Amino acid sequence: MTAAPEAKYTEETVLWVKHHTPKLMTFAITRPEAYRFAAGQFSRLGFHDGEGFIWRAYSVVSAEYADTLEYFAVLIENGSMSAKLAVLKEGDKILLDKTATGFLLPERFPDGKDLILLCTGSGIAPFLSILEQPEIWQRFEHIRLAHSVSYADELIFSDRIAALAEHPLIDEHFHKLHFVPVVTREAADGALGKRLPELLRNGELSDAMKLTFTPEDTRFMVCGNPAMVKDTFQALMDMGFAMHRNRVPGQIMMENGF
Rank of each mutant, 00 (worst) to 15 (best):
Q138I: 06
P126Y: 10
S122P: 08
E141R: 13
S148T: 02
F127V: 12
F140M: 09
Q138L: 14
L155H: 08
E107A: 07
F103E: 04
H142G: 12
F103S: 09
L105Q: 13
G102W: 08
I124W: 06
A152N: 10
L128V: 02
P106L: 13
F127M: 14
D153Y: 11
D114S: 03
E154T: 03
H142R: 15
Y151C: 07
F103C: 03
F140C: 12
P106F: 12
I136L: 15
L117T: 04
F127L: 11
S150A: 12
P106Q: 06
L105V: 09
F140R: 09
G123Y: 06
Q133C: 15
S129C: 06
I130M: 15
I116V: 15
F157M: 05
P106G: 03
R108N: 12
A152K: 13
F127I: 10
E141F: 08
I136P: 03
A125L: 12
R108D: 05
L155M: 05
G112C: 00
E154D: 10
I116D: 03
C119F: 05
S148R: 02
I143S: 13
H142M: 12
P126M: 11
I130S: 07
G102A: 08
F109K: 00
H142E: 13
C119D: 08
P134K: 09
L145W: 09
F157R: 00
S129M: 05
G121V: 01
F103L: 11
L155G: 00
G112F: 10
I156R: 01
S148F: 01
L104A: 09
G102P: 04
E107V: 02
E141G: 15
K113W: 06
F127G: 13
D159G: 06
H147A: 11
I116W: 02
G121D: 01
H142C: 12
R144L: 00
R144C: 08
G123A: 13
I156S: 01
L118M: 05
F140I: 07
F157K: 00
S122K: 05
R144M: 02
Q138H: 15
E132G: 14
P110L: 00
